[in-house]
Design a protein around this nucleic acid. Structure first.
Length: 637
RNA sequence: GCCGGGAUAGCUCAGUCGGUAGAGCAGCUGAUUCGUAAUCAGCAGGUCGUCGGUUCGAGUCCGAUUCCCGGCUCCA
């Protein structure tokens, strides 16, 4: 008998004896025996106490490996359920998985949990962990499982079991008085759980369906050791500090006021400037790539929305207004006007592809509970484009857009993931068109070897889409760029072009955005940079700090020079000490704090201080202007 | 939309048992003219989210409502 053992650190050992992974871990070392949480036998994740077959490959996991951490967190979820049931015997448990960040468990409770309950449950968890209860796997038949959970009144578990095929063998895990339906694996005993924390309370629908009962969810996180847990808690705290809603106010970028309307953003001077810089960047990038800038109206006749299918499929999100017996819909999307540009004259295949770009402001009535700072609003501007091309050109156009997305995301240093979303239940168009559109998107991803996940039924109502999800500072994923293939709207609006053979053909339409919505993207940017925007984006690039009143004229002169070069320079001429002005500029995260005093005036120089704290002394004025100009235009090259 | 929590000065927050509101920062005025993260003094600032109820009396208790926060569902 010989067993290849891969240790958590990646090293490999050859072991001759052993009946369980736990035994083998113990034979290798005390530390490993203590830290191991699960094992992988011939690629299958199992309990440490699972019997080993003769010859096999074995991989031992601790909380340091992704698989081990998952097991640890899943076990922490069980521990939490056990603690909750002990303190509140009348609660019923639903499901409690590990997540990317930690774990949660959903409960049905006679009264909602309160924050102080979390503390009590956490203490109980600590007690149960100290008791080091063995966690035991038991295989039972479907019928035995049903009887077991029915006898405990666990109706949610019953419902889950009933959906499994008759005759199936299931596994349950016991720890002390608590038993849970679970595939496993789990840590061998509760003492393995040494670092966990309950984080928040929330409502969650049973099985994620809005029509089902609302359960009480408790979120928590767990790590292999205290240190890793503390690090995570520290990161959460850091993330809170860079919340774009907080920074948006502190940096005077924007506000959202109840009196004005929830979900409607008011851009203050600095925010509007930031937004303008971003929009200018976008216009330039689009023109470079052969797009044409267009603009459509905010209101379009209701009949048009009926023809496009928006009225049937998107009405509950639309605002309507009626004047003199005519009903107009405020646009929730920009495509219709673009189609009318296409239709305004006879198009030849020689004209295609056509790429219409619009910074299009749209209004969507989002449900009240979903609004969130800049990232979920009711009025927003999309960097929207509609590409009209022949079916033969479709691949190249999609590829071009994917390259565009990459270029732009690289500019901001964002990583992202790609998803392919297929036909939803509520949709227009025939199966064949959907199939062709989906295939076109898939082909483009495959030929460029772009890894992607499939998101069944998550497409737009008029076509499938490629979604790009970028990751923000809180490691939340945000949908920004999306590419949607559409064979249906060209049909509904009878778009045609003249083919080489003189026949009228139907063009394909691509809907796409790169940043998604300017509002959302800026919200993400604020958190990404923690408000310290790179110089090219910073609303204020330099602030002049005269040391006393007699240095103000020189500071004004420098400001004038910078402004004449298109650089965004402010002057802090308040009667305050330098330290005070530096502090404020630092808090405003202005890239350059330019100190001017006697020496600078005398030498026609400046002493710039960076946000990092680095101070440069007496840089010749023309040299500083040149450097700043170079930095501020980096994005144009 | 759903579950839970919350709303006091521009901001961050205190306000005990129901007895008519307080701090720091910001603002204003004055003094100070200063070299890299807060100079000093004075002044002003509030329909306690809104509406209704209980009470001799409500920031405080009850109800409704609006908005916000944490999630769920939905989504750019």
């Amino acid at each position: 008998m010989s067993i290849h053992v891969t240790l958590p650190d990646g090293s490999v050992k050859e072991v001759a004896e052993g009946t369980t992974p736990a035994e083998i871990a113990a034979s290798i070392g005390k530390r490993l025996a203590r830290d191991a949480v699960a094992a992988e036998v011939d690629g299958r994740l199992v309990d440490l106490t699972a019997p080993l077959p003769g010859d096999c490959t074995l991989k031992l996991h601790t909380g340091a490996t992704p698989e081990g951490l998952d097991v640890l967190r899943h076990s922490a979820a069980h521990l939490m359920a056990q603690a909750a049931k002990r303190l509140f015997p009348e609660v019923k448990v639903a499901i409690g998985p590990a997540t990317e960040e930690g774990f949660y468990y959903d409960f049905d409770t006679p009264r909602p949990f309160r924050p102080e309950d979390l503390e009590a449950i956490e203490h109980e968890m600590e007690r149960l962990a100290r008791e080091d209860l063995p966690v035991v796997r038991q295989e039972v038949s479907r019928e035995e499982a049903l009887t077991l959970f029915a006898s405990q009144g666990e109706t949610y578990k019953e419902e889950l079991i009933r959906e499994l095929p008759v005759g199936e063998t299931l596994s349950v895990y016991r720890q002390g008085d608590f038993v849970d339906l679970c595939r496993g694996p789990h840590v061998p005993s509760t003492g393995k759980l040494r670092a966990f924390k309950l984080l928040s309370l929330a409502g969650a629908y049973w099985r994620g369906d809005e029509k089902n009962a609302m359960l009480q969810r408790i979120y928590g996180t767990a790590f292999a050791d205290r240190e890793a847990l503390e690090h995570r808690l520290h990161m959460l705290e850091e993330a809170r500090k860079r919340d774009h809603r907080k920074l948006g106010r502190e940096l005077e970028l924007f506000s959202i006021d109840e009196e004005v309307g929830p979900g409607f953003v008011i851009w203050h001077p600095k925010g509007a400037l930031l937004r303008t810089v971003l929009e200018d960047f976008e216009r330039r990038e689009h023109l470079k790539r052969g797009y044409q800038i267009v603009m459509g109206p905010q209101l379009l006749r209701k009949e048009l929305w009926e023809r496009s299918g928006h009225y049937d499929n998107y009405r509950e999100n639309m605002y309507f207004t009626e004047v003199e017996g005519q009903t107009y819909g405020i646009k929730p999307m920009n495509c219709l006007a673009h189609m009318f540009i296409y239709k305004s004259k006879l198009r030849s295949y020689r004209d295609l592809p056509l790429r219409f770009f619009e910074l299009g402001t749209v209004y969507r009535h989002e449900k009240s509970g979903v609004l969130h700072g800049l990232t979920r609003v009711r009025g927003f501007t999309q960097d929207d484009a509609h590409l009209l091309c022949t079916p033969e050109q479709l691949q190249d156009e999609i590829t071009g857009i994917l390259a565009f997305v990459k270029d732009v995301m690289d500019r901001f240093g964002f990583s992202y993931e790609v998803e392919l979303s297929t036909r939803p239940e509520k949709s227009i168009g025939d199966d064949e068109a959907w199939e062709r559109a989906t295939e076109a998107l898939r082909q483009a991803l495959q030929t460029h070897a772009i890894p992607y996940q499939v998101n069944e039924g998550d497409g737009a109502f008029y076509g499938p889409k490629i979604d790009v999800k970028l990751k923000d500072a809180l490691d939340r994923r945000w949908q920004c760029a999306t590419i949607q293939a559409d064979f249906t709207l060209p049909e509904r609006f009878d778009l045609t072009y003249v083919a080489p053979d003189g026949e009228r053909r139907r063009p394909v339409m691509l809907h796409r955005v790169i940043l998604g919505s300017i509002e959302r993207f800026i919200g993400i940017l604020i958190e990404h940079y923690a408000g310290a925007f790179p110089t090219w984006l910073a609303p204020v690039q330099a602030v002049l700090l005269p040391i006393t009143d007699r240095h103000i004229p020189y500071a004004q002169k420098v400001q004038g020079i910078l402004r004449s070069r298109g650089l965004r320079a402010e002057l802090d001429d308040r009667n305050e000490k330098l330290g005070y002005k530096v502090r404020e500029a630092q808090l405003q995260k202005i890239p350059y704090m330019v100190v001017v005093g006697d020496k600078e005036v005398e030498q026609e120089a400046v002493s710039p201080r960076l946000r990092s704290g680095e101070a440069r002394n007496l840089v010749p004025l023309d040299e500083f202007v040149r450097q700043l100009e170079e930095e501020a235009t980096a994005h144009l090259r």
